[in-house]
Structures are given as structure tokens and as C-alpha cells.
Nucleic acid binder design. Structure first.
Length: 363
DNA sequence: AAACCGTGGTC
DNA sequence: TGACCAAGGTT
């Protein structure tokens, strides 16, 4: 043997004990609004849906708004979808809002408004996948279901120095996560390991000296925690371009509701050209205007926005029209004073900002 | 199964 | 400033 077997390295290392982590959590865990509501699956579910790919700081305000607007799952189910989308505006991933509403209706109609108590049953509901099902089952009902989110992937990849990059490593990580999950106090454990990932075992500058699992962590022992989890390099995002058409009539402008499915589904937007990878010939946007282009005026400033899978740069072209007739059957004339009555994605709020900065009444 | 689906903060 | 990241799910 020219090389020491790996087991000798593991030999000086303790195993991560759930009770050490839970003790740390009870002393050092974060105080979050939904932590006081673990007896209430509705609130835990609501928080978990909002927290999907979204930071705690961002979620807190929305969580309070939703609990106030919809105190019970029946209230949520009885609401028009438009009101749900309106409250959700700005939070992103709008299919979550549509699935949230649908899930509430399924619960009321088929479950007598009572949340199922097992991860297996929870996962059958719309918008609830493996992570969220395990989170609700463990946090509310202490089912020893292993949660695997971004925090857990990072913590486990460092503990065990998982060399396989994400997402190929997921089967291995899931297996380790299940092995670490205790039979008792699974709810505290689930929240503890996420808090550890968020506050100690952070993506950058982890605080290994404060970690209750430091002596069990392979990456920390070697001083290379930030090398894990291993990841594939991401391809650069494609850049897309287009023109928004700002049809105006007096104090009104024309906007349309986007299709129910797909990007920004169900939210409001200006009509536009297709969003294409080729920059448009900016000297002739007239030929692309869907409802006529007399008196078209192109704004100097464009709007840039980055989505999950592409970048977008949009020009804005104002087109005053003489008659306030409907331009299509999927939109409406909206008064400036009535903007807040509708659900606008952040992209459109950026457009409003550019318009407000550049628009001259009577110009 | 790989692509799609938002946004804001950080360095 | 661009790349990365945040309590993922659906198709």
C-alpha cells in the first residue's frame, strides 16, 4: 500500500449527531414568523411555498400579507385567482401562486380543509414536491422525512466531501440526508439543518468555528469548505431583445393579461414584439407594432432584466391613439391612477419607471 | 430528463 | 458588473 486507505482519515472524525445540531438550534436558531406556527400546517405550507428559491428576508412581508388577506385555507380557496396573483406580484415564479390557489381548492373540496399528515400524501398536492412535502410532514407532524434543499445539499456535501457535482450527486446526498435524520424531533432537526446552512455553513465564508458539527466535517478539517458542493459550470445566458408598445389615450394606456401558463403567466404586460435573440432594426419598429404605429416615438432609454434562463433588453415605443377602442380582446385601457389594481411583474415596473422618467405630457 | 420558471442581494 | 445564490416544482 503506497497510500493510506480512506478509512484511516475518517477514523479521527466523529459522526454528525442530530442531537448536537438540535441543541445548537434551540439555542442559536433564527426566530422566524412561521416558527411560532408549527401547529398550523396552513401557515407552514404557505411559508414553504414562498420560500422555494426565495430568501427569508423577501418572504416575511409576503407571508404576513397573505395571512392577513387569507386567514384560513378556506379563505384562500374562495378568493379569485387575480387577488392571489396581485398579492404575489414581485415575488416571482408565479406558477407557485397559481398552484397555491389550486392546492387550497383541492384541500377544501377533497380533504375537508384538513392537511394530510404524511409526506407521501402531501406530495400528491399541486405545488408540493419532495422537499416541501418532507418539510411540512416533519415540521408539523414530526415525521422523520428527510428534507433535501439547497442548504442540506451544501451541509452534507461538506460533511462527507461529496466529490460528485450537483445534480448528479443528489441520490447520494438524499441517502446521507435520510441516514442523518433522527426518528425523534424530526421537525426541529429539519429546521436546524436549514438554519445551519443559512447562518453557519453558508455558501461563502462559512463560520466553521461556530459549527456544532465542525468535528464531524471532512471539508472543514481540511480547511476547504467552500470547495463543496462541487458544481458544473453554467453556460452564459442568451440575450434577447424586443420592443414594448406603449399605446396611450389621454390618461390611459393599453395593457394585456399574459397567458395563464408560461413566463409571467396571468400577469399584466404591454403588447410587444416577440422576444428574439436578434436585435431588432431599431429604425423601423413601426412594422412590428401590433395595433398600428402612427406617431410612434421610440424612448431613448431601454429596459434590461434578467430572468432565470435568459437576459432581456426591451426598447419602449409610445404610440398615442385618437380613439379609446379596444385594441384586442385580451387587454384593456388602464388609467394611470388605476395601475395598482392590477398584478404587474417586476419587469413591467421597470418599464413604468423608464416611462415616468422620460414621458412628457403633451410632447 | 433537461428546460423552464423571477427576483433581489452579494461580492 | 457579472456570476452566483436563495427553504424547488412542473413538464
Amino acid at each position: 500500500m503506497t497510500q493510506a486507505p480512506k478509512i484511516s482519515f475518517h477514523h479521527n472524525r466523529s459522526l454528525p449527531q442530530a442531537q448536537d445540531l438540535i441543541a445548537w438550534y434551540r439555542d442559536q436558531g433564527r426566530d422566524l414568523p412561521w416558527r411560532h406556527l408549527t401547529h398550523d400546517p396552513y401557515s407552514v405550507w404557505l411559508s414553504e411555498i414562498m420560500l422555494q428559491q426565495t430568501t427569508v428576508v423577501t418572504v416575511i412581508d409576503y407571508f404576513h400579507k397573505f395571512r392577513e388577506a387569507f386567514p384560513t385555507v378556506q379563505d384562500l380557496a374562495a378568493s379569485p385567482l387575480d387577488k392571489v396573483l396581485h398579492l404575489w406580484q414581485g415575488l416571482g415564479y408565479y406558477s407557485r401562486a397559481r398552484n397555491l390557489h389550486k392546492c387550497a381548492q383541492v384541500l377544501v373540496r377533497e380533504y375537508q380543509s384538513v392537511f394530510p399528515k404524511t409526506a407521501v400524501e402531501l406530495e400528491k398536492l399541486p405545488g408540493i414536491g419532495p422537499y416541501t412535502a418532507a418539510a411540512i410532514a416533519s415540521i408539523c407532524f414530526d415525521e422523520p422525512a428527510a428534507i433535501v434543499d439547497g442548504n442540506v445539499i451544501r451541509v452534507i456535501s461538506r460533511l462527507f466531501q461529496v466529490e460528485t457535482p450537483v445534480p448528479q450527486s443528489l441520490p447520494e446526498v438524499r441517502s446521507l440526508a435520510q441516514a442523518l435524520t433522527p426518528q425523534e424531533h424530526a421537525g426541529d432537526y429539519a429546521q436546524a439543518i436549514m438554519d445551519l446552512g443559512a447562518t453557519i455553513c453558508r455558501p461563502k465564508s462559512p463560520l466553521c468555528l461556530l459549527c456544532p458539527w465542525q468535528s464531524a466535517c471532512g471539508a472543514a478539517q481540511l480547511g476547504v469548505p467552500e470547495d463543496y458542493p462541487k458544481k458544473e459550470k453554467k453556460a452564459p445566458l442568451p440575450q434577447k431583445y424586443g420592443v414594448f408598445f406603449f399605446y396611450t389615450h389621454g390618461q390611459h394606456f393599453w395593457a394585456e393579461r399574459r397567458p395563464e401558463k408560461g413566463l409571467l403567466g396571468g400577469l399584466m404586460a404591454f403588447p410587444s414584439t416577440a422576444w428574439a435573440e436578434d436585435p431588432l432594426p431599431l429604425e423601423v419598429p413601426e412594422s412590428f407594432a401590433p395595433y398600428g404605429s402612427e406617431d410612434l416615438q421610440l424612448f431613448e432609454k431601454a429596459v434590461a432584466h434578467t430572468f432565470t434562463h435568459f437576459k432581456l433588453t426591451m426598447q419602449i415605443a409610445q404610440i398615442p391613439v385618437a380613439q379609446a377602442d379596444p385594441l384586442s380582446n385580451q387587454g384593456q385601457w388602464i388609467a394611470w391612477s388605476d395601475i395598482d389594481a392590477h398584478a404587474w411583474p417586476t419587469l413591467m415596473k421597470k418599464v413604468f419607471k423608464v416611462i415616468a422618467e422620460n414621458y412628457c405630457v403633451g410632447a
